Amino acid sequence: MEWIKQTFGTIKPIIAMCHIRALPGDPFYEREGGMDRVVELARQDLMGLQNGGVDAVMFSNEFSLPYLTKVRPETTAAMARVIGELKRDIRIPFGVNVLWDPIASIDLAVATDASFIREIITGVYASDFGLWNTNVGQTIRHKTELGAHDLKILFNIVPEASAYLGDRDIIDIAKSTVFNNRPDALCVSGLTAGAETSSEVLSRVKDAVPETVVFCNTGCTVDNIERQLTIADGAVVGTTFKVDGKFDNLVDESRVRIFMDKVKRFRG
């Protein structure tokens, strides 16, 4: 638990998503604006999140739809360029998430000096992306081989747009994930980005592994954040910070500020 305060400078941190626009090689990449436009929009979102008062930011290729479970090199390279150009503007702790590839996420984190990653690290799933498999042993060994000993890994144990391949209760998954893998944190999600995480599921997971950090991973809003933070040790927030609360839009700094003012009153 101590690593939360050391990394984020607060209890119950809010990690805001900086959703990078479609990149070279992605079906919806906008070639007319090119990478300069991608960087420009990422900077705009970053500044809105920071100025609004979030505790940390996580850069993710959220618009690389449809997602790959093993990304191609151009994606990681393009994300590294974006973060590299933004480094002088980043004033808060940051992490990365290369959807849906934990090895690439570690590579990007090491290249950019990120403090944490979030990914699907364990399990086998029937998903919108086909049969989705993982190799946690390989992933953690890769982290060790790169010398990323201080890099924190947030294990998403309820992947979006997928179902665990096998009849396992979320509590069994949480307990075995903690026992076998010693995660820095578990993330509990809804069905898709922006979908509310079940408070009942969140509570069951936290009760099952009380010594492990548990984050609410999707669907936090200004109306439910106090309830979710009563249970969880922090939250990852994306869609609600955007104009009109819509996934495709850019960040609305005023929405961020209203949300974070409520969080700070709750923490205070």
Rank of each mutant, 00 (worst) to 15 (best):
D172A: 06
A193I: 14
I103A: 03
R88M: 13
G234T: 05
E160L: 10
E85I: 08
F8A: 06
F247P: 02
L154Q: 06
V82P: 10
V236A: 11
F59H: 08
A80Q: 04
K143C: 12
P159Q: 06
E200D: 12
C220K: 00
F8S: 01
R204C: 04
I258E: 11
E200H: 10
A235M: 04
I117K: 00
Y164W: 15
D172G: 08
A161V: 14
V96M: 05
P102C: 09
R37L: 15
Y125H: 05
Y29I: 13
P93A: 09
G190W: 05
F247H: 06
A77I: 05
I173P: 02
G234L: 11
I11A: 14
I170M: 00
E30W: 08
L151S: 00
G238Y: 09
L146Y: 03
A232C: 13
R37H: 15
R267M: 06
S105F: 04
N61W: 12
G48T: 01
G234E: 02
V251R: 01
F266M: 02
I173A: 01
T218S: 01
I11H: 05
L68G: 04
G33D: 08
P73I: 02
S176H: 13
A77P: 07
S189H: 15
A235E: 03
A104M: 14
S198A: 08
R21H: 15
E2G: 11
F266Q: 01
E253M: 12
R88A: 09
M1T: 08
I103E: 13
I117P: 03
I140G: 13
L86V: 10
V243W: 03
P13H: 07
I90G: 01
T221Y: 03
K206I: 02
G53S: 07
F247K: 07
D169R: 00
A126R: 15
F94L: 05
I90P: 03
N217A: 08
I140W: 09
G234P: 01
K87N: 05
I121Y: 14
A109Y: 00
F179S: 14
V71P: 03
E196Y: 03
C18Y: 08
A42E: 05
V213Q: 04
T75R: 00
K152A: 11
W3S: 09
M1S: 11
L186A: 11
A163H: 15
P24N: 15
F179E: 11
C216G: 11
L250W: 03
D172N: 12
S254Y: 06
K175M: 13
K262Y: 06
L165C: 06
T230V: 13
N97K: 06
R227Y: 13
D184Y: 09
